[in-house]
């Protein structure tokens, strides 16, 4: 109990400091108030034109599609992560050594930083854009299952963090891992459903995606938000897909831990 309380105190302290640090650059976050709605408008007109007179496309109607992109944008603000960039920078510059000596696990420190950073995202990106989407664009952005949606977004938050942390750890082997990170960002953009719902991909690819981390980072929480989950022609109840998402997160945490231990055996540094 005492350990948990101590960990929570650390999380709170690091999150508050990160929040204050990034608050100095809050206009960076506020760029999203302009960018998010602009991208949303583009998507709105693309899909309105694409539907034409059709009522359904790949099992989604136009309203569901518009809600999909609205929810995808908003959930993206809550789960966005750059732990990979921070970690690879610390490894490349040798500064990771100072973290290796601290009586706190670096991953927990990075996670606490993310919490603080995303609270800022909640205030300066999520809430303003939510207001714009609902009041200006009249998009209904009320989750069908509030509880499951919150749980799924939390799992996506964890998934994004652990996956990016794993990516960052590749720098223990390659030192400069910017290429790998860029390739991953590209793949996750396409296969997590940020650009287009995954049901538009060929069936065989949709089946493979079940076994990759990408859908659990964005597509699953967004579909849980809309209240219907379909992938590769398989329709699932919301509790089941959230359960699968939780399992995927557990596997990712396990991989992250194994990789961290291997990384620590490999890492060496002098006087950073």
């Amino acid at each position: 109990m005492k350990t948990i309380k101590k960990q929570l105190n650390i999380l709170w302290a690091v999150a508050v400091v990160t929040y204050k640090e990034w608050s100095a650059y809050r206009t960076h976050s506020m760029v999203s108030i302009l960018v998010g709605p602009i991208y949303f408008i583009v998507q709105y007109f693309i899909w309105t034109a694409a539907y034409g007179g059709r009522t359904m496309l790949n099992g989604m109607d136009l309203t569901q599609m518009i809600t999909y992109f609205g929810a995808s944008t908003l959930i993206g603000y809550l789960t966005m992560d750059f732990a990979d960039w921070n970690l690879q920078m610390l490894i490349r510059t040798g500064k990771f050594l100072t973290f290796a000596l601290r009586p706190i696990h670096h991953r927990f420190f990075a996670f606490s930083q993310k919490v603080g950073h995303r609270v800022l995202g909640l205030l300066f990106e999520f809430i303003p854009c939510y207001i714009i989407f609902t009041l200006l664009f009249k998009v209904s952005l009320v989750p069908r299952h509030m509880g499951w949606t919150i749980l799924s977004v939390l799992l996506a938050f964890l998934m994004n963090f652990y996956i990016h942390y794993i990516l960052g750890m590749t720098a223990f082997w390659f030192t400069q891992s910017s290429g790998i990170r860029r390739v991953f960002d590209l793949l996750s953009g396409v296969f997590s459903g940020v650009f287009i719902p995954l049901v538009f991909f060929p069936h065989a690819l949709q089946k493979i995606l079940f076994f990759l981390p990408f859908p659990y980072m964005s597509y699953v929480p967004v579909m849980v938000f809309t209240g219907n989950f379909t992938l590769a022609g398989i329709e699932m109840d919301i509790p089941i897909i959230v359960g699968i998402q939780a399992l995927a997160v557990c596997i990712t945490i396990l991989i992250s831990e194994l990789l961290y231990r291997a990384s620590m055996r490999r890492f060496n540094g002098v006087g950073a």
Binding site: I46, A50, G52, R54, L57, G179, L186, F195, I196
Partner: peptide
């Protein structure tokens, strides 16, 4: 390569939209 792959996403989305039977009138 990354720049190339990154910028062919939009054509890919167009192909997927048309592949689903939809399109711009």
């Amino acid at each position: 390569t990354i720049m190339l792959l990154g910028d062919i996403i939009f054509p890919l989305i167009t192909v997927l939209i048309y592949g689903s039977g939809a399109g711009f009138e």
